[in-house]
Amino acid sequence: MTEQLKLSIKNLNVFYGDKQALYNINLNIMEKEVTSLIGPSGCGKSTLLKCINRMNDLVEICKTDGQVLLDSKDINDASQDPVLLRMKVGMVFQKPNPFPKSIYDNVAFGPTLHGMTNSKEELDHVVIESLSKSGLYDEVKDRLFDPGTGLSGGQQQRLCIARALAVNPEILLMDEPCSALDPIATAKIEDLIAELKEQYTIVIVTHSMQQAARVSDRTAYMHMGELIESGLTKTIFSNPQHQKTQDYITGRIG
């Protein structure tokens, strides 16, 4: 582990209208590690995740204050462009959401959008590489031009990961990426996460304690909009500092 600080969240408060969803969150995320966010439903995990690539901008009533420093620069700064930010911080959603286009076009969408490639060959290369990274290439190489919506759920989710990787992000956010998948597909995604962390910083929201324990280096436990504690996954699971964390891990809060 390199122990290099990639992302630092400082005193973050988030409001939906009058309702506060996050209270004074402080969290550090290390480069090329997997950090998992756990906690009961509605505690603000997705909200926190969306703050990292400003998807919250889409929610009109959502207001944030505090800092989110990516490589020591505040992403909410007026000079920061959300488009450039989202190129650096990719996102995979809970429900697989491939575009109603071919598999190839799904992956090619980002690079084309941002003009990252200068020729067809380059683009082909990026697409194949991304599909390979997400472990999907071998399964779909004969039908790259079939609709992405025709794949199975797990394949669709890996397609979405490939699509995010094609933009060459530094951070990958995953919001319960396995909750709509069966155990076999879940296992594949978990293996994939383990491989991807060689190159990417990953933040994953998960509902499953086992998953957090299996895939992540660090874990942050949230409760009702507050960050209760965070640290190395091993420590959190074996020796939680807070009663609430312990209750949750042992299944008393759910």
Partner: peptide, 11 residues
């Protein structure tokens, strides 16, 4: 320009 840089906006 885009051959060597990543532009904010596409050509």
């Amino acid at each position: 320009l885009s051959e060597i840089n990543i532009l904010h906006s596409q050509p």
